[in-house]
Design a protein around this nucleic acid. Sequence first.
RNA 1: GCCGCGGUGGCGAAAUGGUUUACGCACAACACUUAAAAUGUUGCGAGCGAAAGCUCAUGUGGGUUCGAAUCCCACCCGCGGCACCA
Length: 817
Amino acid sequence: MAYDPQKIEKKWQRAWEKSGIYKAQDTVGGKKNFYHMVMFPYPSGNLHIGHWYNFAPADVFARFKRMNGFNVMSPIGFDAFGLPAENAAIKRKIHPKNWTHKNIENMRKQLKSMGNIYDWSREVVTCDPEYYKWTQWLFLQFYKNGLARKAKVPANWCPSCKTVLANEQAEGGKCERCDSQVIQEEIEQWLFKISSYADELLKGLDNLDWPETTKIMQRNWIGRSEGLQIKFSISNSQFSIPVFTTRADTLFGCTYLVVAPEHPIILNLKSEILNLKFVEQYIEESKKKTERDRISDLKEKSGVELKGVKAINPVNGREVPIFVADYVIMHYGTGAIMAVPAHDNRDFDFAKKYNLPIIEVVKGTVPLGGTVPTMAYEGEGALINSDKFTGMPSNDARERIGEWLQKQEKAEKKVYYRLKDWLISRQRYWGAPIPMVFCEKCSWQAIPEKDLPVLLPNIKNYLPTGEGKSPLAKSKKFINTVCPKCGGSAQRETDTMDTFICSSWYYLRYADPLNETEFASEEKLKAWLPVNVYVGGAEHSVLHLLYSRFFTKALNKMGLVNFSEPFLGLRHQGIILGPDGQKMSKSKGNVVDPDEQVKKYGADAVRMYLCFMGPYNQGGPYNPDGLVGINRFLNKAWGLFEKSTPTPKGVGAPTVSVGEFKNPKTEKLLHQTIKRVTEDIEGMRFNTAVSALMILVNELQQPTYKKDHGSISTFLLLLAPFAPHMAEELWSRLGNKDSIHNQEWPKYDPKLIEEERINLIIQINGKVRDKIDVPSGISEKEASDLVINSEKIKKWLQGQEIKKTIFVPNKLINLVV
RNA sequence: GCCGCGGUGGCGAAAUGGUUUACGCACAACACUUAAAAUGUUGCGAGCGAAAGCUCAUGUGGGUUCGAAUCCCACCCGCGGCACCA
């Protein structure tokens, strides 16, 4: 019978579902638990090839762990809240909930066609009230522990549409809809204090088994910088301006200060500023700029001097002018800087434009280039023009000047982070409601936990309101409630939560998905967490992966979980491109539909091809023609079985072990293949594992080996993680009653993989001149005797003196003449 | 601009200091066939050569080494992330 994937794949998927073989028990005697997880998909409607690339090779790994004696849990779910559901709803006039559930249903079917070991009994869907009840509960814990606060946050605001705009909707400072000028407006929003965990988030990275590049991205994102906070007093005034710098060594080169437009000192000095009108005008102008605009004209720096006020440089008592300029941002450091134009390019640009003095204080090894420097020198060097510090290396001077100023109480050491607090409010319908109420008398109050979940009401109009508020604000039924504290009338928060919150804890829920009284029980969390290996795209290197770490650390501090990192191991798959090497997109017409591929070649073939394509973390073009090779391989493997086995009539069919198999040459290759495949899967080098299997099949196919059951059983075990359906089918045809996926992974015999004879490379002066077949373990003396007397080599030596011999056992001999 | 990743046959790639091009695709010839498909066998980096063989080739240029795709330096190209962070 020919190989027919359509038939056997459906058959085994049903059988596995029926037997519940992949259901993860919390404890299995004698086995260690292994929590394997992939990034759960957003239910966009269809599983695309990128999902397959994430999930299929990851499943190979999970199956491999399973066969290696681990009690593996591999759960799946849906990240179901979010904007696209609303957009689709608006476009197609169906409710976001219905749209989402329809998509989930379809994707569930597609996921099942992959043949993965998902434990569907643990499925979580973040938009189900049973789930978001606990998202809300967790919000309350953050709130009660002082990690959630409501604060005014600048947002892009269109005064004409009366709405908040995302950065993308305010391109060029104009409202996307009405083209009017967008301004920066402060709006009350909920924030999570992730910044208070900056240091722990940074330190925790050190011990994680994560890609180094991902760790670097998180470190940069957190952006810790150590420096000095220096007080600049203001002449004839009680006020002073603290500035933060990492380059205290350049203090003598400070020729002016700059404060951000939002800096409070401007208000304080109002009466002193001679050109106040002008300054206020500038501040108004900069308010009009969106953050994006401020970034877009990086080179064109503008600012206005605060006339009538001067700051005093604490190192030399010199008076310097103060400017307000929007190249300084309020939310980092102190919102004010000391400008050293000779040694900072931003200050340099500004100083050039406004004709401010540039004083060089660090001499680098690279000269600035002539008398008119064209850019600042930002490197290290020796100090000049710096009083008693002149001549000192800049890194020493940094410390000395710091100590000196600290003694005078004019400065203190300080650490600042780039990481901002996490804005979690969304003025959107399709998300989990924030479980808070506002009472005129008692201010913000948490909803009592017993009243959770705060259900997302089924309103008709879920379109954005155009008033900067969530569509929920229109539902009187939803808003009006009573204050949990005083019992008076109160109003619900109408913002919903950022969907990143839902995905920041789903890995906890998988451990105990049906629990109605807790987000997860202590016992179940203990059984499974933290996650051993998490597989997903590198695009989540910062946001999702950082938020999840923050959640875990916060819950750990609250005593809700007993670990402080959620994902011990992390691996990224690469990005799949279209057959033309371009990013897949409908407009380019290069989209590969996995369903079609499965229909044509079967899930096993698609799984294997994705493994075979190239290095897993690299991705690359998906070439449907390449699948032909895998298809041939699977057919060969199938044929191998057909030819090797007399049709078992069900009775006493052989279950064969490796030991029964006798041909020495194949036996050696078989054991080498076991080693190779084992090590390659462990290291997620799926491509080379598949090629090793191909080499084995090519060998087993040779006429001499056709009747060999032992090798075929072992081969099937090695094949099982990659092509679980075919392996199961052939395994059962061999007469085995138990599933192949319950079998133990084969072990290789180290003695059997050694070669008796090897190909010794002969080099003269490092160039390969011959290869000879010799017994393995040959000594240097034996080898060099062979070489010197070889006819082929004689012409290269031509009686020259051998100056040096390099001998690499079992590999090569190199004679230097 | 800064940080990170990569550049090897016609193509996907293998090799992480020791035979460059494993495995697969494509291509060609042959076998089977009335024929085609499927399958199998063989060949397949470039140049010179009848052949044995030699020379050259891992983005470019230099260096370290007995020996470099692999390590170091400079540069070019492609991709990803961040972006006035003081």
